[in-house]
């Protein structure tokens, strides 16, 4: 389990990194935290000719809060997100989910941009980004563009970023008032990728008893993180009550199409997605009502 030969560079500015990526295209692979890429290199499942180490570009790390969103630089470590008070205040769903990412030493090294770019369908951060209707900032020598999460995650470990494009930041929009969130997941062991996970975002009407808007995003049930748009639509205008959660769970079960693997069957995932839907909605609404957001 030793990595194959490659050439390595460690640019110290974004411009330098983009230049190298532009030069080598598909042959180059950006190295962020390396917590998914290096195991694949050690197993010789990935074979880039050139590794472009982003760890020496300080400008790529940082958490910034604006009126409209929380912007997290691609090279911000999971641990920094976990420790961030502005994340805890502004994005409770992210704060709650981040603790489910791997283990302490993985979160120390792993980065937000790396997780998003890797696009593992059972990973938390892509799910959180999609649940919050977040966006991905991409940059290349050709320019800068912003891609909504729903257009970014294309397929299994595949995104809409071009080979010369780098994820430089992600943006998590700020929640409207009377919103609550909940992140729940079921994994085989603590820290494992989820068998099924759900992020629920609920915004209540002014009566605080009716659902104005709800978003449900699932991980571990498809080739990308998946929004249950049908269930979301059906939730709008419904009373915040157990019956509503049960109907939403049923809608989710009808809507999702998970696959089987050695850890769980498709039927299990579908059923548990419904269970987590009920639990997460109830919790998110409770938080919205208490004004604790998440």
């Amino acid at each position: 389990m030793k990595p194959p030969r490659f050439r390595y560079c460690s640019p110290e500015s974004l411009e330098e990194a983009l230049a190298v990526l532009g030069e080598f295209g598909d042959e180059a692979k950006p190295l962020a935290g390396g917590q998914s890429l290096i195991p694949m290199l050690n197993m010789r499942l990935a074979r880039p000719s050139v590794l472009v180490d982003l760890n020496r570009i300080p400008a790529l790390a940082g958490i910034e809060r604006t009126d409209r969103f929380l912007r997290i630089g691609a090279m911000t470590r999971h641990r920094a997100v976990e420790r961030s008070e502005s994340v805890a205040r502004a994005q409770p769903l992210l704060a709650e989910a981040i603790g489910y990412v791997g283990h302490l030493p993985i979160r120390t090294r792993g980065t937000v941009g790396g997780s998003i770019a890797h696009a593992d369908p059972a990973a938390e951060l892509p799910g959180v980004l999609l649940a919050l209707d977040g966006t991905v900032e991409l940059q290349s020598r050709r320019g800068h563009r912003t891609v909504p999460a729903r257009d970014f995650f294309v397929d299994l470990l595949t995104t809409s970023a071009d080979p010369d494009e780098l994820v430089i930041a992600v943006r998590f929009p700020v929640l409207p008032p009377r919103s609550g969130t909940a992140w729940l997941e079921v994994a085989r062991r603590h820290g494992d990728y989820a068998l099924v996970g759900v992020g629920a975002v609920v915004t209540l009407a002014e009566d605080r008893r009716t659902i104005r808007d709800a978003r449900l995003c699932f991980i571990g049930v498809g080739n990308t993180p998946v929004r249950a748009t049908g269930a979301e639509a059906a939730l709008r205008g419904q009373p915040a009550a157990a019956d509503t959660w049960r109907s939403a769970a049923e809608a989710v079960r009808n809507e999702l199409d998970p696959a089987s693997d050695i850890h769980a069957s498709a039927q299990y995932r579908r059923s548990v997605a419904g269970v987590l839907t009920e639990r997460a909605l109830a919790l998110a609404v409770q938080r919205a009502q208490e004004g604790t957001a998440g």
């Binding site: 390595y8 460690s10 190295l31 390396g34 917590q35 290096i38 195991p39 050690n42 180490d53 760890n55 030493p105 993985i106 120390t108 090294r109």
Partner: peptide, 10 residues
């Protein structure tokens, strides 16, 4: 950090 998930050059 995991020293098996870092290169010495890093």
């Amino acid at each position: 950090v995991r020293s098996c998930l870092m290169f010495a050059v890093q």
